[in-house]
């Protein structure tokens, strides 16, 4: 049985210009998530979180490496069916555009009608309207139905950390293009770059 998600030696490099090959940003990731799970993702703005999500859904092409969703290389799946394997929920998530050099008829079908991997990119959490509760229940339901959920939060309020602690079973931390995997909330807090990043919020709790 294949893992839910395998990110193998994935590299994405952005260059200064088409002819000036000076790298301006580099992202590297290599991790495996075997089973359905709710994975928290944190990291400063501009560290590469959204780029990683785009690489996992196949809307962005890697410079090297591959992404396997339940054994299927997402970049070899028909562009019009990639959202049946992985969905990236961002601000304008409803628009799905994929670019590919190869025509769809030469690529593989998704073999699924409902996405296996759900990537939530900084969903709007508002403590006043009660929707947080429904969203968290939805993440739990997806997981119980055998899906893999990523929840990317840029914590700037205490309750953001409460949400992550309540619902996420493991974590991915991204900083300056470096992706690290952590087995629990405590684990990620023991990781120095994550502690520095959360700094103020963690001391708020102590206070």
């Amino acid at each position: 049985m294949s893992a839910m998600l395998e990110v193998n030696a994935l590299q994405k490099t952005y260059f200064k210009a088409r002819f000036d090959r000076t790298p301006t940003f580099q992202l590297g990731a290599d991790f495996v998530i075997e089973k359905p799970s709710i994975v928290g993702m944190m990291g400063p703005n501009g560290s590469g979180k959204t780029t990683l999500f785009e690489l996992i859904t196949g809307s962005n092409r890697p410079t090297a490496g591959e992404v396997l969703v339940q054994g299927k290389n997402i970049h070899k799946v028909r562009t019009d069916q990639r959202d049946r394997l992985a969905i990236h929920y961002h601000q304008s998530y409803q628009v799905r555009s994929f670019r590919s050099l190869k025509p769809n008829m030469l690529m593989q079908p998704a073999g699924s009608d409902y996405p296996l991997v759900h990537l939530f990119d900084e969903p709007q959490f508002n403590t006043q309207d009660g929707y947080i509760g429904f969203m968290l229940d939805f993440f739990r339901k997806l997981r119980a139905d055998g899906r893999l959920v990523f929840l990317c939060v840029h914590p700037n309020e205490r309750f953001h950390l409460e949400i992550l602690q309540e619902i996420c079973e493991q974590f991915i931390f991204v900083q300056k293009g470096v992706v690290t995997q952590h087995a629990s909330y405590e684990d990620v807090l023991n990781y120095e770059p994550a502690r520095d990043y959360l700094g103020q919020l963690l001391t708020d709790r102590a206070a």
């Binding site: 009660g130 229940d137 939805f138």
Partner: peptide, 20 residues
Amino acid sequence: IAEGTPGELQSNKWVQRSAL
């Protein structure tokens, strides 16, 4: 994303914390 009677939905702890 969620379904139930008003009572079931309102028993959610985050709904309890909200204006609802």
